[in-house]
Structure formats: C-alpha cells, structure tokens
Nucleic acid binder design. Structure first.
Lengths: 142, 142
DNA sequence: TATTTAAATAATACTGATTACAAATTAGCT
DNA sequence: AGCTAATTTGTAATCAGTATTATTTAAATA
C-alpha cells in the first residue's frame, strides 16, 4: 500500500495523518512477522525517538478500527498485529506465540460461501490454528 | 458429557478429580454463553465459597490442555471459555465482547478439507467473525 | 480404614501489558 | 499566519493473570 493511499485513508475517515502514525503504518503494514506492540515501539523509536508507547497503542487501535490491520492478541496476553486483513489462517504456536500465515485459494473460496451463509458482512475475521512450532517441539520443556 | 466421563478423563491424564475441578467443569461445560473467568469464579463460589481465583485459572488452563474446552481470550483482554471444541464460528461483538456460536455442516466439511491441505493435525482451532451486536448497534456510542 | 505423599488449594503479593489523564504540541482548515 | 480541535507525551493507575508458599487432600498402598 502506497503512503499516499494511507494518508488518503486517514483523511477519508476524518483522522489526521501525523508523522507518528505514518511511521507506524510504514513498519507494520510492510511487516511479515506479526509484530508485538513492543517490537513496533522499539522499531519506530529509531525514527521518532520521542514517540510514546501510548501513541503506539492508540494508533494500532485506530488502524484496526479503520480496517488497515487485524489485531491478533494471542494466548499469552501479548497482542500481535497482522497487516493482512483478507481471510487467511494464522498458524500459532501454543508455547511461544509465534505466528505463521497460511493462505490458499481454496480457503478464500470456502470463506466467501461461509460468509454468504452467515447473512451479514463481517467487520473482519480471524482464523487460527494451534500447534507447537518446530523450535518448541525440539526443546520439549512441557 | 457425564460427570463420570470427566472424572475418567482427569485420571486418564494423571490428574486428580477434585471437587473444585468438577464444580468448574459442571458449570463451564454446560454453559452456553462463553463465560469469563470472573463469571466462572462467581458462579462456582456459590457452591464452594472458599474457592480461590487462582484455582479457577489453574483449572481452566488444565481443561484447555487436556482438550475439554477452548480458551478464547477475546479482543478486550478478558479470556472467555468455550466448551465446544469442534470447528465452529464465534460471532464476536467488537464493542462488548459478547460471543455467539454459529455452526454449520458446510463449515465442518470445508474445515476438514482445509486441515488436509495444512498437512498437520492442529491441536485446536478458532474461527472468529467480528461485528457489532444488536445491543451495541442500538446504543451507538461509538 | 489408617497411613503416606505427591498433588492440589487458598490466600496474597506481585508482574507487566494496557489504559487514563492532563498538559503541551500540531495538522490542517480558513 | 492564526485558530482550534485533534493528537502526542509522559506518567500514574488499572487490572487480568501468575508466582509463591503454607496448608490441605485425593487416592494409592498396606
């Protein structure tokens, strides 16, 4: 997504396109690894050393509200954010919380039928599947 | 699920079938409304006035581990628990966090194909769909 | 049924992610 | 360039969930 599109999106929804917001967008929306709030804060602090953690939280909620990302808040109480808002599966490790994406045409096709059945257009969706990831299976602590 | 089956399940997995655990099972596994930890605590306290909140948390995690229920930890940071562990959709209100179930044969059929594609047997899954519920749409605060 | 013991409970202190607040700053309008 | 409501900051407060430890107990064994 282009930076100009993002700015337009903010304006369209009646919000200001502040540099802090754009910096967070630039990082999260390009990110491949479902970052946590902390990862985002530390990354954006490189560019805006005075940014407040509160701003990061507020912005992430805003981005979720206007549909630019999906909040994943995983099982260990630490939220993660996913720039992909189209139907896909999050393969989540029950131990460490790491998230991998799984996309397939079949899933998208199925999903559109399911939504038809539902009878309303959802604001968003989230499809998770749990397992233990490679790393956690190797170090079989529990 | 019969109480005897539940007791057997605990023993099979090497855990003790304590009265506290059984009381929590009795409430949650029969519950239709995806209760929060607090709801469970307050309900079970009727029968076991000395029960500790810590016991409730521990028991719920145990029940999740041995596959008797599904932890839902919803978007507002408060965990909810779902006695239904088969594939179904949780229709979640983005404002108040209320959860409704949606089941369909079509979904179950689709899901088994998706799992085949995945190439591994998941420990569990969670399929959420977001909207604003009736009540929250009516009281259009935000 | 009494004994034994590892497991479980209760009570409470603690942790850490998230939110609330209020003063200072600023995007974007005119 | 000035205005103003929106936004940001920094910090304090909140609160769900966890850790800890002394006490109790389920259930295996004799």
């Amino acid at each position: 997504m282009e930076i100009n599109q993002i700015i337009a999106k903010f304006h369209e929804k009646g919000f200001k396109a502040t540099p802090q917001r754009l910096a967070i967008c630039k990082y999260v929306l390009l990110s491949k690894d479902h970052p946590t709030t902390d990862m985002i804060y530390n990354e954006v602090k490189q560019e805006y050393p005075t940014i407040s953690l509160a701003t990061v939280y507020q912005t992430l909620h805003l981005l979720s509200d206007i549909g630019l990302l999906q909040e994943l808040d995983s099982n260990n109480g630490i939220s993660r954010y996913d720039p992909k808002t189209s139907p896909h599966i999050n393969i989540i490790c029950k131990k460490c919380g790491k998230v991998e994406d799984y996309e397939s045409e079949r899933l998208e096709k199925f999903w559109s039928k399911i939504v038809d059945d539902l009878g309303f257009k959802p604001l968003g969706q989230r499809i998770d599947v749990y397992r233990y990831c490679e790393d956690c299976r190797r170090s079989r602590v529990k």
